[in-house]
Amino acid sequence: MTQLPSYYKFWHKLGHYSLKFGAWSVLFFLILPILVIIPLSFNAEPFFSFTRGMVTLDPDSYSLRWYNNIVTNDNWLLAVKNSFIIGIFSTIIATILGTLAAVGLSSQYMPFKRVIMLIILSPMIVPLIIVAAGMFFFYTKFNLAGSFAGLVIAHSALGIPFVIITITATLSGFDRTLYFAGLSSGASPVRSFVDIVVPIIRPGVISGAMFAFITSFDEVVVVLFLAGPGQRTIPRQMFSGLREQINPTILAVATLLIAISVIFLVTLEVLRQRSNRLRGLEGHN
C-alpha cells in the first residue's frame, strides 16, 4: 500500500475504531434483548425485572417455578401440541408443493417465470392482517375457520415462498450439463433426476422445510383470526398472555423457543456449508 500522510493515518484509525465501536453496539442491540430473557425466566418473583437477589446471585432468587407452570398448565400443553401438529402438516404440504414448483421454476423452459414467481412469493409480502382478514371471510364459507385443516392450509401458503427461495437458490448454481450428462449416458429422465438433482437440492429442501416450519410455528395473526379455543398455538397463547396478564411463564416459554431457534440456526448453517461444498462454491457467498 502507498504511504499515506500521517494525518490520514489518524483519521483512518479514528474511523476504524468508531466503526468497530458502532458495529459492536449494533450487535449488542441485536442480541442483548434476547439474552436478557433467559435469566429473567428463572426469576423466583413474578416480575419481568431483575431483583436484588438475582444480581447478587443469591440462589433463592432463582427458581424453576415458571417452567413448572408450563408443564402443569393444560392450556400451555395443548398449545405446544397444536403448534407442532399445525407446523408439521403445513411443512409437509409446503415442502412437497414448493419443491415440485421450484424444480419447474428453475427450468430454463419455464414460461411466465417472472409473473409466476411474483405470485408465489407474494404470501411473504402481503401483510398478515390482510391475509388473516381475507382468510376469515373466505374460509368460514367452507367451514375451515376454527379447524386444524384451515390453519394447516393457511400456514402452508405462508411457508411456500421460503421453500421456493431456498430451493431455487440451491438450484441456481447447479450445472445443468450434469443432468444432461446423465441423460446422454443413457439414464432415464427420472433416474437422472433422482440421482443427480435430488442430492443437490436436498439441503435446500431441508432448509426450506425448516423455514416453512418456523413460519408456521411463529405465526400468530392468522391464528388469532382463524383458530378456536381448541386450536390455540404457542404464539397465540403468548399473545394473549402479553395482552392480559404478564407473567414470567411467558419468559420461560420464550427461553425454550430461543433454544429451538439456536438448534435450527446451527442445523441450517451446517446444511448451507454442505450445500456450498456440493455445488462447488467455497466459503460464504
Binding site: 419481568f48 425485572s49 431483575f50 411463529d218 419468559l251 439456536v262
Partner: peptide, 27 residues
C-alpha cells in the same frame, strides 16, 4: 450467527423481550 439468531427467534419472543426491557418496572 449473532445477526441470524434474532432473525430465527420468534417474533413474540423478541416482542416479549422489549416489554421486559421497557416496562415501568422493567430492566
Amino acid at each position: 450467527i449473532l445477526v441470524m439468531l434474532p432473525f430465527w427467534t420468534s417474533l413474540l419472543v423478541r416482542t416479549t423481550a422489549w416489554i421486559a426491557l421497557l416496562q415501568t418496572n422493567g430492566v
